[in-house]
Simulated assay, not measured.
Amino acid sequence: MPVPLSILDLAPILSGGTAGDALRRTLDLARNAEQFGYSRYWVAEHHFTPGVASSQPALLLGQIAAVTDRIRLGSGAVQTGHQTALSIVEQFGLLDALYPGRFDLGLGRSGQRRQEALKELSSPPPPAEEHVVDGLLIPKPFSFAPLLASERSALLTSLLQQPGAEPPDFPAVLDTIEALLAGTIAEARAVPGEGADLELWILGSSGGQSARVAGERGLPFAANYHVAPAHVLEAVTAYREAFRPSAQLAEPHVMVSADVVVAPDDATARRLAEPHGLWVRSIRTGAGAIPFPTPDEAAAHVWTDADRDLVADRVATQFAGTPADVAERLRTLQRVTGADELLVTTVTYDHADRVHSYELLAKEWLG
């Protein structure tokens, strides 16, 4: 039996489109995903990005829950540095009160990463080269340190936090979230929230704190091949090495993400995937994701060598092709990482192409 297959949606805003258009497409895609047989439907949290409408996961998940019946819904991920543990528990507790037993609370770090980026700039890690592990491409790593340490990043962080606030310690936030869910803080009862039937996940892009904390607490872990493909193996290894059994899990449980575009033939898939590189370039130049370009807009872009280097790892690790080809590459990803589940994200300019991509993949994967 194939491992479960799920969707990560950023609610992409298209060139010439609006956030409202993007969010309505998300609701339509979620309805279709449920019919196609996907296991989970997660939405991201991104801010200050003209090309992404998914900024408030809990709000968006409530809308998705209202138009679906059974698919699990979750956050990929709520950023713990942008709000208090109590507000997170109350938001997802409210969702669970209205639609019981359907939600995954995926958590990620924020704030702390900027401090780590400043340290990385002063003491960069040794360079690593592209290599292949049992058929899986592990590209040269891309460093987010210059972006996270920039003045723009400092400004955006100040807008996401209360004046004078310091990034919270990630394990301490998890302690509070777990205590509020369990109702063990007698003087502070989260209503709704206490006793909510939530599946708690940790997301991470490296073998750092997120992977270790997820393992130490016996929580499921989601690793990003689509965001930081160079670090996926170290992330899942660190998680498994740190794992301790818990009430939620007796053994490690890993989900790994991937960028995919599926079409009936290779030529169509390559054309649909062509804007991906230009979109990634806009993110990595520090301006935030632009509205997703049309294939013609992408084809008209004049690429420099520096541009190509900037996005090389993400372009090379996007799985674009026929259903059989993409499924085979996903099986390689699953085999090499030992993933218990896979999480795919697809962005195309035309919504019908995007829905069709997910439909083709589900038919190939699930049979």
Rank of each mutant, 00 (worst) to 15 (best):
P100L: 11
D309R: 14
H82S: 08
T322P: 06
G37P: 09
L361P: 02
I71N: 13
F103N: 04
V227H: 13
A66M: 11
T49C: 14
L343I: 01
R271D: 10
L160M: 10
E116M: 14
L14R: 15
L361W: 09
A263E: 04
R113G: 15
L330K: 00
R281W: 15
E116V: 08
P12Q: 05
P291T: 04
S246P: 03
R212G: 12
T84K: 06
D266I: 13
A324Q: 01
N32Y: 15
L198C: 04
D265R: 07
S122A: 14
A267S: 12
F292D: 01
A247K: 06
L180N: 00
G367A: 05
Q83E: 14
Y239M: 11
A327E: 08
P264T: 05
R212E: 12
P220L: 03
E297S: 09
E178L: 08
T348R: 07
G16H: 03
F144C: 15
G277W: 11
S39H: 15
G111E: 03
T18V: 01
L160A: 06
E199T: 08
A269R: 02
R308I: 10
T184M: 03
D175V: 07
P125D: 13
N32C: 15
V191I: 06
T346N: 12
A117T: 06
A299C: 07
D28K: 13
E274D: 07
G17I: 00
P4Y: 07
P245N: 03
A179N: 02
A97I: 04
E34A: 14
P245L: 05
T348P: 03
A352W: 07
S87K: 06
V67W: 12
F319R: 02
L59C: 09
K119W: 15
P291C: 02
F48D: 01
V213Q: 09
S357E: 04
M1F: 08
S6I: 03
A11N: 01
